[in-house]
């Protein structure tokens, strides 16, 4: 089938999509947007988190057909050209990135949190990011990064 989807503001089409393909597969393998990561294919790890019509979803759980006609924002859509989004910058400067495989999903989850709550408490940060697994950091520096990002976005 033919899928038309707006990704990061650009109209994109994917041809000959097999009915079993996920939005994640279309993004990664057909549109070449590999920032969304494939780590569990079960919606458990959050590594493939994207916005679908404004909602944060696991792209591995969305069938390609469901995304037809939708607006999708991926991690590639956050930065303004080469300059990092404040959330991305906060992850870099707080050392919240190690292997980095979970990072794109966590950055989008952080974005989603801060859109709804610009000054989250630590408990609120932990609750909001509980759907994103990280195996390297023990999360301590991720919490710091979210705090910093909240501060930076509030100032900005």
């Amino acid at each position: 089938m033919l899928i038309e989807v707006t990704v990061n503001g650009r109209r994109r089409t994917a041809e000959n999509v097999w009915a079993g393909e996920s939005l994640l597969y279309v993004l990664r393998e057909r549109l070449g947007l590999r920032g969304s990561k494939d780590a569990c294919e079960q919606g458990e790890c959050g590594s493939c988190s994207v916005y679908l019509d404004g909602d944060l979803v696991c792209a591995c759980l969305v069938s390609a057909g469901q995304a037809d006609g939708a607006e999708v924002v991926t991690v590639e859509g956050l930065a303004d050209g080469e300059s990092l989004h404040p959330i991305q910058q906060a992850y870099v400067s707080e050392g919240a990135v190690q292997c980095g495989f979970c990072t794109p999903g966590l950055i989008l989850a952080t974005h989603c949190l801060l859109e709804a709550n610009s000054d989250p408490s630590d408990d609120e940060i932990r609750e909001a990011l509980a759907g994103n697994l990280c195996r390297c950091t023990g999360y301590e520096k991720i919490v710091s990064a979210v705090r910093l990002a909240a501060m930076e976005t509030a100032v900005g």
Binding site: Q88, V92, V97, P104
Partner: peptide, 21 residues
């Protein structure tokens, strides 16, 4: 200092083995 691979990783542009094509 920030690790040199961190900007690519937060941008989603860092090429993991599973991203190769």
């Amino acid at each position: 200092p920030p690790r040199p691979d961190a900007p690519l990783k937060v941008l989603g542009r860092f090429a993991y083995a599973s991203d190769l094509e």
